[in-house]
Design a binder for these strands. Sequence first.
DNA 1: TCATTGATGTTTTTT
DNA 2: ACATCAATGA
Length: 714
Amino acid sequence: MNYEKLNPQQLQAVQHGEGPLMVVAGAGSGKTRVITCRIVNLIEAKQVSPESILAITFTNKAAGEMKERVRAMLDLRGSFPWVSTFHSFCLRLLRKHISELGFSNDFVVYDTQDQLTLIKQCLKVEEISADTFPPKSLLNHISGFKNDYLLPQDVEQDSMTYGHKFKAAGLYPAYQAALKKNNALDFDDLLVFAVRLFHECPSLRDYYNDKFRHILVDEFQDTNATQYRLVRFLSESHTNICVVGDDDQSIYRWRGASIENIFKFETDFPGTTVIKLEENYRSTQNILNAAGSVVRENKNRREKTLWTQNEKGSPVMCYKAEDETDEAEYICEKILTLNRDEGFTFNDMAILYRTNAQSRVLEDVFRKNGLPYQVIGGLRFYERKEIKDVLAYMRVVLNPSDSVSLKRILNVPVRGIGKTSVEKVEAYCREKGITLLEGLRDNEQVRLTAPAAGKKIVQFIQILDYLNTVQANPLDLLKEVIDQTGYGAMLEAQNSHESRGRLENLNELFSAVENVEGSLQEFLDSASLVADLDNLDDERGVLPLMTLHACKGLEFSSVFLVGMENRLLPHASSMSDPEDYEEERRLCYVGFTRARKNLFLTHARRRRVYGETVTNFPSDFLLAIPDEIMVRESSGYGNETAPRYNQNPEQAIPIQEEGEGLYSIGTKVLHAKFGTGIVLKLSGSADDLKLEVFFKAPHGKKKLLASHAKLIIL
DNA sequence: TCATTGATGTTTTTT
DNA sequence: ACATCAATGA
Ligand SMILES: Nc1ncnc2c1ncn2[C@@H]1O[C@H](COP(=O)(O)OP(=O)(O)OP(=O)(O)O)[C@@H](O)[C@H]1O
């Protein structure tokens, strides 16, 4: 067998036969490797057939990597284990069986924006003021119910004090009914409905218990109650369940995850074999020491050993910056030096921060200095307005009852179907209990709206009907949507800086569709479930920037953790709740332990936040780190009176001045999404320079705006 | 019905 | 600071 290296404890876990198994161990101790090798061992040594193994990972990317590893170790022809996230697994399950629960299998998955639109509608119908009860807060509570597997009928409003949660409980049934009317599930429903399926259909439960003989779950510390139930159902008959996790790395409590799942596992699964891994293979002694010092301050925690044979390594560096620009410049310089002098590639380093907003200044400085980077997270590609609009057309074609999507596009681009018309039709629909699209069709006969609007509605329906005739192929459909609905023409007509960016995004959507094989349904599903992290590209050699939450499970030679300040890490919102505060510490622990060799921490005396300058104190977490292993640096300008700003305009490098000369035919450039390319053509004026660039496959020739495309000249 | 303006919330984290 | 969104008048 072509195993990866394993220590005796890992080997024991890998070779463990039947029955429940839990591996609890600190960061970098090879937990994920255990799962991977265990899959291989089950197939090779225990003759378990690949398709009867189900492995759950935290992200689609982790799933992809795990599949890759397994593939590398085994020669599998044909069948393959199921490796996916909880959500993808549930979606696949529901597409097959949801009819058992009274939904049709072409249901649509609503994202947060769609949920928000829907709950606002509910509020309107129930005549609840959105000001006293913020839709976001209500949704959060409803999500909380679902994460705890509380169905609408199980939520006891009586036991609650009057407030947002109370109102959310009251609204929950109406919200679910609205989803059903739209033939839609929200994100959390994917899990809830999967559990319901097993709960209400014993035959399906038996079938899947029989189908999946071994269940493996990575990152078990961040599972919620609903996921826990699902795991129990899946392993009910055979209890061949292997979970792997680290309670110190539980960072999704706010999303309903419960560390308790680790603690109660042994009681819920009698006869569990517990294995601890104590050797860390990833980090230097200093890094491990620093991380341990921080997280050991947590009260609610199980002590565990974590040691390493690795060398002591460099001390942890802690830089005190004047402001966020200084912080970014320090990091930028360090990274360029590490790259130049020590040969670290950019993708072997990472910038981690607590909040997405912190990336902005870093990006500006990196761009100025020609440092290629890639932001993970933030606003996701599929959440952008133009993408959502176009996808909404496609969704309506597939699922005509989806009125949230239908309303979204009814007057986009503007075609003279205004608010009053829509409201009239909606009222009519409610009365007759039909869907919005059906109501719109009736309008021609019933004449609810002004004649002008009625005519427009007829035209709109004609477009939809036409789109229906081309729905077979996602690529053709996308093309027709952009052409026939006038969406593309609208953006071209606007001809603004912004609209051109949107057009570019639509082009990118084209390449995404081209790369997806399979049906329209499968494409829309994958679009609903992709996490931005799944786009993390290790090939291109660019520096990744991401939040501490997004870095889970990854590793880098050098890690920069920025904004080590009170109110940022720990975040201001955690200060009032000790449990939240401890989670911030775990977040810090997760960040530190991503580093193999170098850990750089930075904090700024002042930074702009919400457009105001605030001064922050260094993070209290820094106090836990022993002096012997940390070297402190500062901006060299020492005290407050020293002018930090470069008043000399000649010194401030004006990179924005990208007049002639900066680009010419043949210039090599780097684009955040398309990678490296070569300039083929230049046109337009200096401040509105248009480029035609040829990128590597699969992107090919692209037209870009120099001012918008954020290109880096290589 | 549309376009401009002011208001609002965003930034804590996301499958 | 910035962007998106709702109210306002044309
Ligand atoms: N027995 C071993 N010998 C040498 N290296 C190992 C061994 N086991 C794992 N590693 C290496 O240690 C690193 C961490 O492994 P892995 O990602 O599996 O740990 P983990 O416990 O899942 O980490 P985390 O909890 O931080 O996500 C990887 O680089 C892996 O290749």
